[in-house]
Amino acid sequence: MDQGRCNQGQGLRPFLVWNSVQGTPRMLASRAFASAATIFALMSSTAYAMESIGPVNPIEEPSMLEEIHKKLRELEATGEMERFKEEFVENTKRSVEEPPPVQNVITTREARSYHIDPTWTAPNTITTPDGKHVVQAGDSINPLDYITWSRKFLFFDGRDSRQVELAAQIITAEKGAVRAILVAGRPLDLTRTWKRQVYFDQGGSLVRKFGIRQVPALVYQDGKKLRVDEMLP
């Protein structure tokens, strides 16, 4: 091997490998060179992607938060904010003091009584966390086989003085074992007057469940069923 060529090859050793068979230097890219080239290519690509494609203008739309604060300051300055607060408080008090009446319920025109069977059929098998069967699918269960409904439910219209008077008489006769439930009227006023809790059937969910169409109506347990009496006021 020629010494001069060896010395020359040693100076280029990171990038040249001597081919002893052919006697000529063979150029190979080192790992360092390849890595540097890759990083440079990525940096160039990234820089190109971040370049502006078209004209760039400053954002001129006002900040939404700033606009909201500006509007609130204007309302406070004109006194409108205080008026809104007062209206909100009054509307809230009104909805609590006198909720919207339950729809499709009238004062009893013709007394009637009927029974409701609370028996329930299980659509699926119910098990405990440890796998024990509580109820098999298809089983019929009557809750009144296991519990006693000790309180009666009395539904009435608090706007009708006759119904209010009848409700007071029933509550006294039952020695308080009655849950008074309004379908219209002012429950808080009656609560203060009677010094006992008076409820309101919000949205009419209970009267629909019991099928009540007329009030006053009394719901109570009768054997293994529930009885509903729609009474004349």
Rank of each mutant, 00 (worst) to 15 (best):
Q3W: 10
G9H: 14
F15H: 13
Q22K: 13
A29Y: 05
L65C: 05
E74P: 07
E74S: 14
L75H: 09
F88V: 05
T92Y: 12
S95T: 09
E97R: 11
E97Y: 06
Q103V: 06
N104S: 02
I106P: 00
T108Y: 08
R109M: 11
S113P: 00
S113C: 02
Y114F: 15
I116W: 02
I116L: 13
N124F: 11
T125E: 14
A137M: 11
D139F: 07
S140M: 15
P143H: 04
Y146D: 01
Y146Q: 04
S150I: 08
K152S: 15
F153M: 15
L154I: 12
F155E: 05
R159T: 14
S161C: 00
V164T: 15
A167L: 01
A167D: 00
A167Y: 00
G176E: 01
G176F: 10
A177L: 11
L182E: 02
V183I: 14
D189L: 03
T193W: 00
T193S: 13
R196F: 01
V198I: 06
Y199I: 03
L206W: 12
V207T: 14
R208M: 04
I212H: 09
Q214E: 14
A217Y: 12
Y220I: 08
G223F: 04
K224G: 05
L232P: 09
L232D: 07
